[in-house]
Write a protein that binds this DNA or RNA. Sequence first.
DNA 1: CTTGGAAAGTCAACAAGACTGACATAAACT
DNA 2: AGTTTATGTCAGTCTTGTTGACTTTCCAAG
Lengths: 170, 170
Amino acid sequence: MHSKRLSRPMGRSEQLLFLTDEQLRQGIELMFFAYRGFTADPDRILENYAYGRAHHRAIHFINRTPGLTVNDLLDILGVTKQSLNRVLRQLVTDGLVESRVGTQDRRQRNLYLTDEGIALERELSAAQRARMRKAYSNAGPEAVHGFRTVLEQMIDPAMREKLLNEGGGS
Amino acid sequence: MHSKRLSRPMGRSEQLLFLTDEQLRQGIELMFFAYRGFTADPDRILENYAYGRAHHRAIHFINRTPGLTVNDLLDILGVTKQSLNRVLRQLVTDGLVESRVGTQDRRQRNLYLTDEGIALERELSAAQRARMRKAYSNAGPEAVHGFRTVLEQMIDPAMREKLLNEGGGS
DNA sequence: CTTGGAAAGTCAACAAGACTGACATAAACT
DNA sequence: AGTTTATGTCAGTCTTGTTGACTTTCCAAG
């Protein structure tokens, strides 16, 4: 255990980390309320389009990695193909997502946002980034680093590896 | 780390915080994946009881504040009373929650966990605390402080006030 | 005291978005 | 040729949200 030293004197590591059940409970509730705040803005926007969080997630990751396959998206989102397919079909029908037959492997479908899809993605991510930016600014750079460090630890190990194999940590 | 160039000169705080869209996007995805990890353990446990996340939330907050009214819980959870009522009815029927008619105002119902309810709450929160404890330990005390600071900033202001009026600062 | 409105809670019906299972098609692999 | 893989679809179920209509209880104005 790599324990960072604090400026003030401390006892055992439990004390250092304030790992009482009460402290942990506060952390748990913080996650709950913060996640709700985090999704509030996009949820409001999506109501105007008769879409839901599922559509947002699909749009987000297609935007991040244009040309990814349905299977790639399935791995990221962790839902069933039937569930994803309903959402994807709507987005393709509505002209927000384009599904092109793969070039090397023609069983695959490569997914891309259309101009309209890009426009919605911008609207959604702008709102979410604004909230994130405000939270970061108010908290300060040291806090942001800690925020990221703890959150990374909370991700399921298998998923964390996948992310590191592409996103490239800071 | 590929640093993006901005079109305008950065203000001091922005420079410090690296608030590029790419950095913010990483924060957004971190929230998404971390929240999924955060709820994974309870979700697994709840399957054995044919309950869902909604039941977990109700149980959690009844345990935290025994005797709270349905309206109190409604304010915390931010769902409709009809939605909460279904969940609550199941829990009462199954003998995990007791609903006592209010003493001063008999329209109200004060909610308490039964021994069985307390047992399930323990099982769920033990799993969640274990994950939180591990994340905290791996990240270190300074990171934990930053984590809490940023998350607090992400909560909707109205909700944050409510929490401060009871939970007390760290 | 009565009455009318507001508040708390309940019942019923419906919708979004997860799930499973079965099956179809096309392409790739062996 | 036969099997596996990638994708898509149909049908049905479950959880958990929603709205609308309703009862019971409380309180306050007449």
